[in-house]
Design a protein around this nucleic acid. Structure first.
Length: 515
RNA sequence: GCCAGGGUAGCUCAGCGGUAGAGCAGGGGACUCAUAAGCCCUUGGUCGGGAGUUCGAUUCUCCCCCCUGGCACCA
């Protein structure tokens, strides 16, 4: 089976990670885990973009070399992914020699086939900001403001990639592949942008101005700049043009990419225009699919002021646990849409969904199994009760809906289905009232069945939620007496099944207390 | 300016031709296995504004307003 190939945007190492970085990686991780748990091999690639001007600038400010600075920030990203349980298979660093070699090979190919050319550009250039200025930067008086520092008129040669040559092809590809971009409205946005896109792409910087980058193989006075280097990571770290002993996957098996998880800010023009055209020019026939997510806004003014870094994902994970953060990030946004990040809402979700509903269901189930049966259960009876059959059917339906929602990247809907099962299971506890059954010896068989049904329901809920909150789900499964069984189906309780210790997995938050 | 997404109960959202739903929060109740959780009942909305189509519009069409984003604008 072809592995499900999923990648995220690689993060720029000029500043430490924030909640938006965390959301994107968790989203990709959840999708990747879901595929793995359903038995499909997965190649999940993420990483960092270490080259470029801003890294060079930040490094200078910090009194470090770009390489040292990038290494430092890279370590922060990696530490965060570890803390958040982002379990990637491949890690991309654009300073990796394997990447550099492959990028240069592609650049050389484009050069040889005439898809790049050298041209001269002149214009106003800000020395301080290290960029050319356009009329947009002029103030009301038609002058460049003081924020630009010294502005000089210069003329410079650079290398350009013939985007315009491939534009008609891209427009056709978008039109004929409705699943190229998810959600579809982003596809229309891209189509509009392609229709307007006219010029070619400058892919170089003279070394005199920017030394931190990959040298052009056909012109040693330049390095590649902006997107060309970074975008190539999606294939180079999947084994594209890699040596057999490079320690990278077999690219032929991996390609095409099933989901490029990116933010809406980098669809146009980078990932929606430059990237597919680069691939086309390099000779690719099959294009990747783009999964474009929205943003977490920070509408509530009070969020970040006092604490300063409340939206620091690292601090949030410390405060509430990595799985609670993952759950909130997946539950409170519709994939593709924007949402408002709000720590009070995270807390509310934690208490209501995790502590009260799921956590308590597990806790009461395990407690009753131990109290009434010393923790040892009977398997399902041959003749099931009507309400047990109904709950089982509801569980199967929840599993079906979960997978259908995940298949369409609607993680929030998938979770909704799980919590409908949790609510039904809690309702089943009330309607079957095991504490009453326990007082009546003639109801022993019924009590056995009720306990079995509850363990099944709780196990199924945990198994389904596992991609979103892997370690908590594992703890729940362990308390229920299972290990490693993530099959999203009913029927895991065998005769003599033994449950574990009931310990709250999601302790309830009181007032301003952290976990 | 153009394009897109959104504007529905206090909050987060679903519904998208037959005059409104869920979860949370708020109020009440019965229970006790459980993380004083869970369960049952319940308060709450002129569905952004206006016009039109229709027997009938939150739902379709047009105009307008507000929020968000993209493009127009980085060699």
């Amino acid at each position: 089976m072809k592995p499900f190939f999923i990648t995220t945007a690689i993060d720029y190492t000029n500043a430490p990670p924030h909640i938006g970085h965390a959301y994107e990686k968790v989203l990709a991780d959840v999708i990747a885990r879901w595929h793995r748990e359903r038995g499909r091999p997965v190649f999940f690639l993420t990483g960092v973009d270490q080259h470029g001007q801003k890294v060079q600038q930040s490094a200078e400010k910090a009194g470090m070399t770009p390489a040292e600075f990038a290494k430092d920030v890279t370590a922060k990203f990696k530490a965060l992914w570890k803390k958040l349980g982002v379990d990637y298979d491949g890690w991309a660093e654009t300073t990796d020699p394997r990447h550099i070699a492959a990028v240069q090979a592609v650049l050389q190919q484009l050069h040889d086939q005439g898809d790049v050319y050298k041209a001269r550009h002149s214009g106003y250039y800000s020395v301080r900001q290290e960029q050319f200025l356009t009329d947009k930067e002029r103030n009301d008086q038609g002058e460049f403001g003081p924020e630009w520092g010294e502005v000089v008129f210069i003329e410079e040669e650079n290398w350009y990639f013939r985007l315009s040559k491939y534009r008609p092809w891209l427009a056709e590809h978008i039109a004929s592949h409705p699943d190229f971009v998810f959600p579809s409205f982003r596809g229309s946005e891209l189509a509009n942008a392609v229709a307007k896109e006219a010029g070619d792409l400058c892919i170089s910087r003279p070394k005199s101005r920017l030394g931190w980058g990959i040298e052009l193989p056909f012109d040693r006075d330049f390095v590649t700049y902006v997107w060309f280097d970074a975008l190539m990571n999606y294939v180079t770290f999947a084994g594209y043009r890699a040596a057999a002993n490079a320690g990278l996957p077999d690219f032929e098996r991996i390609w095409p990419c099933d989901a490029h998880v990116i933010g809406k800010d980098i669809l146009v023009p980078a990932h929606g225009i430059y990237w597919p055209i680069m691939l086309k020019a390099a000779g690719f026939e099959v294009m990747p699919k783009l999964l474009v997510h929205g943003w977490w806004n920070l509408g509530g003014a009070k969020v970040s002021k006092s604490a300063g870094n409340v939206v620091d994902p690292d601090a949030l994970a410390d405060r509430y646990g990595c799985d609670a953060l993952r759950y909130y990030l997946m539950r409170d946004i519709a994939t593709g849409q924007d949402a408002d990040f709000n720590e009070q809402r995270l807390r509310a979700r934690y208490n209501a969904d995790l502590a009260n509903d799921l956590g308590n269901l597990v806790n009461r189930t395990v407690s009753m199994a131990r109290r009434y049966r010393d923790g040892v259960l009977a398997g399902a009876p041959a003749d099931k009760s009507e309400d047990a059959v109904a709950l089982e059917a509801l569980g199967s339906e929840a599993a079906r809906r979960f997978d259908a929602a995940m298949d369409g990247y609607q993680v929030h809907s998938a979770l909704e289905a799980v919590w409908e099962l949790v609510a039904a299971a809690n309702g089943f506890v009330e309607s079957s009232a095991p504490w009453k059954l326990a007082k009546d010896p003639s109801q022993a068989a019924r009590l056995d069945e009720v306990l079995c049904v509850l363990v099944e329901a709780a196990r199924l809920a945990a198994a389904l939620a596992h991609p979103v909150m892997p370690s908590s789900a594992d703890r729940i499964l362990a308390q229920l007496g299972f290990s490693g069984n993530l099959a999203p189906v009913w029927g895991a309780v065998a005769d003599g099944h033994r449950v574990g210790e009931p310990t709250p997995v999601f302790p309830r938050l009181e007032d301003d207390q952290a976990v």
